[in-house]
Simulated scan of single mutants.
Amino acid sequence: MSSSDISGSNYGLAARSSTGNIAERTAVACLTAIAWYNALELIVLCFTTFKRYGGCYFWCLLISSISIIPFGLGYLLIIFDVYDSYFSVAMELIAWICMVTGQSLVLWSRLHLVVHSPTVLRWTLAMIIVDAIIFHIPASVLELGSHSNKADLFTPGFNIFERIQLIAFSVQEAILSMIYSWEAVRLLNLRPRGNYRGTLVQLLVVNLAMICMDAAIIGVQYSGLFDVHVTLKAFAYSVKLKLEYAILGKLVDATTQKFGSSGVSAPTDLSDFVDLSHNPNNQPPADSDSQARIWDDPENIALQQTRGSSKLSSDPRVSETATPDSNRSVLRS
C-alpha cells in the first residue's frame, strides 16, 4: 500500500507537496511568527512574574515556552525546503516532546493549588508519564523513518499514528483541565466572603478555550493540511501558556485571600503557591511582608494581648503569688 492510498496522506512529511499552496505557506508563516512572539513574551513573563526560580511549575512553564521556538523553526526549515534533513526533524521532535508533555506537566503542577488528594496527584502524574512513553517514542521513530530513504515503509504508519497521538494528548489535557476546573469551582464556592462569580466564569471560559483549540488542531489535521496543522499547534500551545497567566493569578488571589472585610490579602507570587509538593503540609508559605501586615493589624494585636493575659492568669506561679496590682504591672511590662 502506498501513501497515496491513505486518505489525507498528503499531510505526511514524505508525501508533502514540493510546490505547496501560497495560502497555506502564508498561514504557516503567520502562525509561526505569532507563536514565536508569544514564546518570547512567555519567557520574559517567567523571569519577571516569579520571584523564586524553582519548582516543577516554573521549569515546565519555561521549557514549554522555549520549546515553541525550535519546534516552529524545525518545521519552517522542512516546509520551505531551507534545510530538509535529519537535523531539522530531530530538532522539532525534541521540541515537540518538551512542548506537549511540558504543557501537561504545567497543568499537573497547578493542580497542587486546588487538589489536596495525593491519590489524584499521583494518578494524573502516572498518566502523563505513561502517555509520554507510549506516544512520543513510536511517533518519533515513525516520523524519522518517513523522512528517510525508506519513507514508503514508515509514512502509512506515521499518518495513522499521528492522529492517534494527537487525540490521546488532547484527551489527557482535557482530563487535567476538567479536574482543575471542578476542584477550583468547588473551592471557590466554599469561600464565605467575596464575589467570585467573575473568577469562576473566567476559569471555565479559559479551560473551554483550551479544549476548543485542541479540537481545532484535530480538525485541521484530519483535513489533510499537515503544514498548517503543525504551525497551528505551535500557535495554540503558546496561547494556552499565556492563558495560564490570565487566570492563575486571579485564582491564587481568590484562594489565598484573607481578611476580606479589611481588604488585606496574601501575596500573589505564583512561586509561593503553585507546585506545593515541596511543602509537606501542602500550604503556601507567607513571606515576611505579608506576615508583617498581618501582625500589624489592630485586631491581631488585640488578640495577642488577650492571649497573653489569659496565659499569665492560667500560670499557677502567677495566680498564687501575685496580687491583682502586680498582675497588671506584669501585663504592662
Rank of each mutant, 00 (worst) to 15 (best):
S2H: 09
S7E: 15
A23P: 02
A23I: 14
V28G: 02
A29Y: 11
A35F: 15
N38T: 13
E41Y: 15
E41P: 00
I43C: 08
L45P: 02
L45K: 13
L45H: 10
C46D: 06
F47I: 05
F50Q: 03
Y53I: 08
C56R: 11
F58I: 00
S64P: 00
I69K: 03
G74W: 01
L77H: 09
F80L: 04
M91Q: 02
A95V: 03
V100A: 01
Q103P: 01
S104P: 07
R110S: 02
H116S: 13
L125C: 08
I134Q: 09
F135K: 03
L144D: 02
G145Q: 02
S146A: 14
D152G: 00
P156D: 08
F158S: 02
N159M: 14
I160V: 14
R163G: 05
L166G: 02
A168E: 13
F169W: 13
S170T: 09
Q172H: 11
A174Q: 06
I179A: 10
Y180P: 02
E183T: 13
L190C: 07
R193E: 15
Q202R: 06
Q202W: 12
V205T: 07
V206Q: 02
N207F: 15
D214A: 09
V220S: 11
V230I: 12
A236P: 00
V239F: 10
A246P: 01
A246R: 15
G249Q: 12
K250T: 09
S261L: 15
S262R: 08
S262V: 04
V264Q: 06
P280W: 06
N282F: 08
A286H: 09
D287N: 05
D289W: 00
A292N: 13
A292V: 10
W295R: 12
P298R: 01
R307N: 15
G308Y: 10
S309A: 14
S310E: 15
L312K: 02
D315L: 13
P316H: 13
R317I: 05
V318T: 15
T321P: 07
P324L: 09
S326I: 12
N327M: 09
L331R: 08
S333I: 01
